[in-house]
Structure formats: structure tokens, C-alpha cells
């Protein structure tokens, strides 16, 4: 399980890499990343998010299926990055 500090790093990456107009602290851990609710990201963001994860955490998300599983919310993404050694 990712810690709050690790989740904050993920939120900072989201804000910086996707140029979101919000503070990292405004993103709820379980807010959906995509769709009308939550952050409302789209398919172009998904592509950029793959790059952002690779640049910030040196973790390569290799397939669409994998991306679909981890780009759910901050909790899921942070846990995945901890598991893959991208967040310590």
C-alpha cells in the first residue's frame, strides 16, 4: 500500500505533467482519473500519462490493458508504482 507521501508524489506528477489547473492536495485519492467525474481526463491525457509515469518514476507501462488497470485513481496508480519499484 502506498503511503500518503507517495500518493502526493503521484498527484504532483499528474498536476505537472498534465498541466492541471489545481493543487496536488485538491486531488482525492479515490477520484476517478477519467470520465466526467473526478479529474475528467481523456484519451490524449492517457497517452501523456504513460510518458509522465515513465519520466517521473522510471516505470514503463507497456500495454493498454495494463494502463486501464492502473489509471483508475491515485490509489491504484500509487500502489502499482510501489509494486514496480517506482516509488520508495
Amino acid at each position: 500500500m502506498a503511503t500518503d507521501a507517495q500518493k502526493t508524489k503521484v498527484k504532483e506528477m499528474l498536476v505537472k505533467h498534465l498541466r492541471l489547473r489545481m493543487e496536488p492536495g485538491e486531488i482525492a485519492d479515490q477520484a476517478p482519473l477519467f470520465g466526467e467525474e473526478g479529474l475528467g481526463l481523456d484519451s490524449v491525457d492517457a497517452i501523456e500519462l504513460v510518458s509522465g509515469v515513465e519520466q517521473a518514476f522510471s516505470v514503463v507501462i507497456g500495454s493498454e490493458d495494463e494502463a486501464r488497470k492502473v489509471f483508475v485513481n491515485v490509489d491504484a496508480l500509487a500502489d502499482y508504482l510501489v509494486e514496480r519499484g517506482g516509488l520508495s
Binding site: L18, R19, L20, R21, G40, L41, D42, V44, D45, E48
Partner: peptide, 11 residues
């Protein structure tokens, strides 16, 4: 319509 482009355009 697309959030990603909307953010870029807005900026």
C-alpha cells in the same frame, strides 16, 4: 470538447 486540448487552449 476534449479536456486535454481545452487545458492547452485555455492556457
Amino acid at each position: 470538447p476534449f479536456p486535454s486540448f481545452l487545458r492547452r487552449g485555455r492556457a
